[in-house]
Structures are given as C-alpha cells and as structure tokens.
Design a protein around this nucleic acid. Sequence first.
RNA 1: GGCGCUAUCGUCUAGGGGUUAGGACGUGAGAUUCUCAAUCUUAAAACACGGGUUCGAUUCCCGUUAGCGCUACCA
Length: 489
Amino acid sequence: MPMNTALHDTRVRFAPSPTGYLHVGGARTALFSWLFARHTGGTFVLRIEDTDFERSSEEMVNGILDGLRWLGIDWDEGPFYQSQRLPLYTATVHKLLESGHAYHCFCTREELELRRATAAEAGKTPRYDGRCRTIEAAEATQRISQGETAAVRFMVPRDGVTAFDDAVFGRMEFANAELEDFVLLRSDGIPTYHLSVVADDLDMRMTHIIRGADHLSNTPKQVLQYQALGAPLPIFAHVPLILGPDKTRLSKRHGATSVMSYKDMGIVPEAFRNFLALLGWSPGELAKQADGPDRELFSTDELVRMFSLDGIAHSNAVFNNDKLAWYNTEYIRAYDPARLLPLIEEEWRQANYKPTRSRDEILATIPLLQQRARSLKDFSSTFLAYFGDKFEVDPAALQKFLSNPAVVDHLAELGQRYASLEVFDEPRTEQLLRDFAAEKGVKAGALINGARVLLTGQSVAPSLFTVMVCLGQQRVVHRLQAGKQAIAL
RNA sequence: GGCGCUAUCGUCUAGGGGUUAGGACGUGAGAUUCUCAAUCUUAAAACACGGGUUCGAUUCCCGUUAGCGCUACCA
C-alpha cells in the first residue's frame, strides 16, 4: 500500500553513485525528481551511494555536484554519504536476521561462480539455491566467531508474487520464484545496493522513488524488504532510459554523455535543462496553444508548475543532438545581453582570450551576434573580430570574396574615404560605399562581401553597415586598409 | 535462456473507438539579395505485423516480431 501522504509532504531524492561523472540519464532523473519536489512543494534530498569503494571517488562526487549546480538543480538536504552511514545498514540487517527474513551464507565467491557456470551450461537459469538457509542461527554465530566470513542474504519466499504500483508503468507483479536470495550484506560488512537503498529511503522518509527504469526489475527485491520490515511502501516511479542514435543505451560510444561536456561544447544550462525535461516527459495538453504550434520552450517556473509523474513516457527516448542545438540557439538569442555576457566571459576565460573593447561596446555588440550564434563557442571563435583586433580570417571566405586583387585595392581606397567621413552612421556608410562602387563601375555587392571578410574575418555576419557602426570608424578604416598587406602575405 | 518493459513521421512527442492523426527538430523547395548559419513561405514524412472485440480500430484484448532493461558479495 502506498503511503498516504499529503502532496506537500513529499520527499524525493537523487541518489547517484560516484563511479563516474554525471551523465545525461542521471541528470534527467535528477531533473525529474527535482521538478517533482518543487512542483509539490516537497523536499529534495541528495544522497551519494558510494558503497562500492573500489569504484567511487571524491573527484567523481565533485563532478556530479558541479553538474547539478550547472543545471540549476539545488537540494534541500544532503549530500549524505552512504559510506558514513554503515551502522544504519548493519542495524537493518540485524532486524531482518532476527525476524527470520535473512540468513548468513557461507558460500564463497568461487563456489557461487562455479555453480552459476554449471547451471548456465546445463541451460538452467543461474540462481542461488538457498543452501545456507538451513544453517541454524546458533551454528552460524558460532562459525563466525571462529573466524569464518559470511554474507547475509534475504530469504525470498519460495512462492507467491510481489507486487507494487508504479506511478508510470502501473501495476507490477513478479513471481517470487523468479527472485533469488540476494545478498544484503557482503562478507566484508559493506551493504549491497539493495539493502542500503531501502534502509536509507526508509530512514530518510522518502515518499517517492523516482529513478531509471533499469531498476524496475530490482524493485520487488526492495518491496520484499519493506514488507519484512513492516514498513509502508513509497511510491515508485520508473523513468524510461535515454538511448543513443543507434537506439542502444546511451554510453561513451555515442560521444558526449557527461553533462559537463555539454557545457564545454558551449551549451547554455537553460537550453540543456529545457531539452532534458522534454525528453521522456511531456506536458501534454498544457503545451497546446489556441492558435499556432505547441509550445516547446519553457522557463524553469513553467516546468515546475506543469510537471507531473503521469506525463512521463513509457518508452525509451533517443537523445537528439540537433534538437539540443536548436534549443541552444533559441536560448542564446532570447537572453538579455547583460545575462549572456558572464557566460561569454567564462567562455573567454576557458579560451584564454581577452577582449580589447570596453564592456559597454561589448554589451552593445552582443545583440547583433545573438541571432546567429549556435553555441557559446562562437563567441570565442568566429565572433572574435567584434571584441578585439586579434582575429583570424576564414580562408574559405577569403577565397570566395577576395580572390580578385582589384576588389582588395578598391577596399583599401574605400578605407581612405571612410577615414574622412564626418558622421559615421549606417545610412552614410552605406551611401558612401554605393557611390564609391558606382564611381568605380563595380557591383556594390562585391565590395560589401569583400568588406565583410576584412572586417569580420567571416563570410557570414549581420548587415555590413550595422557591423561598421558597431566596430567604429577607426577600426573599419584600419581593417579595410590593412587588407592589402594581410592578403599579400 | 528466464523475467520485465516498450512500440505514432528519420528523431522528440500530442492524441485517442469515427480526426484532413496535430506540433517541434531535422530534411527538400521557393522567397529575400549585402553574406546566411538569419528571416519568411512551402513540401515530403508515422499509427511495426497478425488475429480478435466492435457497426467501426491507430486507439481496447491476445499473439508475433523487434528494441531495451534486469538476471553480481556493481549501483
């Protein structure tokens, strides 16, 4: 029976294992959990599941925390570390031992492995046979006191079914006969996941367990423990997995899977969050607009307001980089320049670049560039000509628009004319160029395209005369005139 | 192998016993001409298959197929 909690009393957690960085699947689980907690006005807890000492590390924990912070996911309690809560798990095991729901198992890893292999060869399902069940508690205690090591296993009923209601998949039933007597406590006294997750979720009074669907088949093992402990069940909500383009589970093979690598690619956090939120979840009718297309762009507040467990999809979703890129352009373009600037500055720090223009000039320049930026990376690469005088010229652009020496000469001369222009604004710079083109008998477009390359280093840019005004008279004159030597080199 | 989950355009999805099956990304075509990676217009593109139930199934049920997950003293 699910707990009967008022919605505002919800307690949910994100419980990553620090055996790797924060990957996109984990990030989405965290997002959904966080969205649910915020939507219900409940509590969001962060718990680090570091009971696999071999593979866990402090560094990974920090990476995960950084990833969450970058995404704007904050937590109300924690981070708690399972490695520091060992007494809770042994206490839980003792309860289970005492109530006869668990027993000591003296089988060694080698023995188990051998039996598994034999069973597999015989075409049988490899499953622990429960042979240590019959060892009396007194005998077990004695053997342990004599120095034998033992693991503790849960005693799964031989028959019957274990059932629970999943908030996304509905009623789930598993035959107990399919389950083996799984290990709760390893022979070194360290709990397995199955034990620590139940002990902690109980101790931390979790009301909803939102996690990846890869845990669906494990859930009956946990339900059995809740029942053995006489505890009410939390509500489980399993979230389908994220797949790569080849429809296999997303992994390193598919390229970037770490959340922070998306930051490094110049993705802005809001874009990533919006994208992730709509991967495997849909606001359904809430996205409908009376006229026009369904909405796809949502602020965090809107996401929080609309989020619900029953909008979660039942099937796996393929991670779509193109759509992410689209979100990124939409968000970059919608930013207030003052809010975008710190992100750009961070990008410059990473690239070890220092702009030479003033903050005000830069702020005035950003709106021109936002429309065309695909990532924050553009601001530290193709857009550099707008922020200082050190920039590279795209060879393809050079080839396309400046391969004719006459054009280069004209542009140098045009630079001189601009030097003596009294009022350097858009209409006047354009008028001057068009008059000049007519005078020389060349097409204005040829000069415009050439000038664009000289001024910005690119063949693609905002309207040329807007760029000129943005750059300022001095720079325009200088770059147009410098073209001749630069190209000759 | 066993158990479980899933199946709507290439991808993310809406929908739901009677619909021209809606939107988004991407793709194609056109427009604009000062470039396009911007903008506008426009096109193509889906209910996996087979049985039921029903007057009628893409929708409900069963099966098949396919994909994914679990099947550790990992989490």
